[in-house]
Amino acid sequence: MKKTLCLLALPLLLSQPGFAEDQNTAQILIGEWQCSQNLTPDEGINLSVEYIQLFTAQRNFTLDGSMKMKFTIAEMNQMLGGDSLNYLFEGSGSWSTKLGYLTIKTENATIKPNNPMAQQLHQAGILDVNKLREMKSEDTFIINSLTSSNLKLTHVKEKFTTQCTRTQ
């Protein structure tokens, strides 16, 4: 009897918020988005990230973009000659939605230096981007707002925001 009740309750449980995929949100997300993030991972470091992210109906995604790292610490600026560190990156993986949330599972990502100072630091082993190759991660975002043309997300753990505009 208990087994039968559990089997009957399972569809009801899976239909509750937090368990079932949010099909309406998923439909709106499908397409190409121009996104940007500004992060401060440590005091004195500012990361500016811009990328194109394509969400497919098969719940896969690709992304392609650039990252600029600037330092507000005078010693770092002097060491770098006032230059920022620039990188290019790309990645792919899968995505899913639940009521009010977007989860992105990056299954592979690559990053490469894109200016002379970043290349020098990479070659010297100081900021070796080879350690970031084939990086895997799972990130969950709160969907703050979503329309057919705009998307605003907040990372659940790290609290940074992402702003996106549909490109097509």
Results as ranks from 00 to 15, higher is better:
residue 2 K to V: 11
residue 3 K to F: 11
residue 6 C to R: 03
residue 7 L to F: 08
residue 7 L to N: 03
residue 8 L to Q: 02
residue 8 L to H: 00
residue 9 A to G: 07
residue 9 A to N: 01
residue 10 L to G: 00
residue 10 L to E: 02
residue 10 L to Q: 01
residue 11 P to N: 01
residue 11 P to V: 01
residue 12 L to I: 12
residue 12 L to S: 00
residue 13 L to P: 07
residue 14 L to F: 07
residue 17 P to V: 04
residue 17 P to D: 08
residue 19 F to T: 03
residue 23 Q to P: 01
residue 24 N to L: 06
residue 25 T to F: 03
residue 25 T to A: 14
residue 28 I to F: 06
residue 28 I to D: 01
residue 29 L to E: 10
residue 29 L to Q: 06
residue 31 G to D: 06
residue 32 E to Y: 02
residue 32 E to R: 12
residue 33 W to D: 09
residue 33 W to L: 06
residue 35 C to E: 04
residue 36 S to D: 10
residue 38 N to K: 15
residue 40 T to Y: 01
residue 40 T to E: 12
residue 43 E to R: 10
residue 44 G to T: 10
residue 44 G to N: 05
residue 45 I to Y: 06
residue 45 I to R: 11
residue 46 N to C: 06
residue 47 L to V: 08
residue 48 S to C: 01
residue 49 V to W: 07
residue 49 V to Y: 05
residue 50 E to L: 04
residue 51 Y to W: 11
residue 51 Y to P: 04
residue 52 I to C: 04
residue 53 Q to Y: 00
residue 53 Q to P: 02
residue 55 F to P: 09
residue 55 F to K: 05
residue 58 Q to G: 09
residue 58 Q to P: 07
residue 59 R to A: 08
residue 59 R to Q: 15
residue 61 F to G: 12
residue 62 T to C: 00
residue 63 L to I: 10
residue 63 L to Q: 11
residue 63 L to W: 00
residue 63 L to N: 10
residue 63 L to S: 08
residue 64 D to F: 02
residue 64 D to L: 08
residue 66 S to N: 14
residue 69 M to E: 12
residue 71 F to V: 05
residue 73 I to G: 09
residue 73 I to C: 05
residue 73 I to K: 15
residue 76 M to I: 14
residue 76 M to W: 08
residue 77 N to P: 00
residue 78 Q to L: 01
residue 79 M to D: 09
residue 80 L to P: 05
residue 83 D to Q: 15
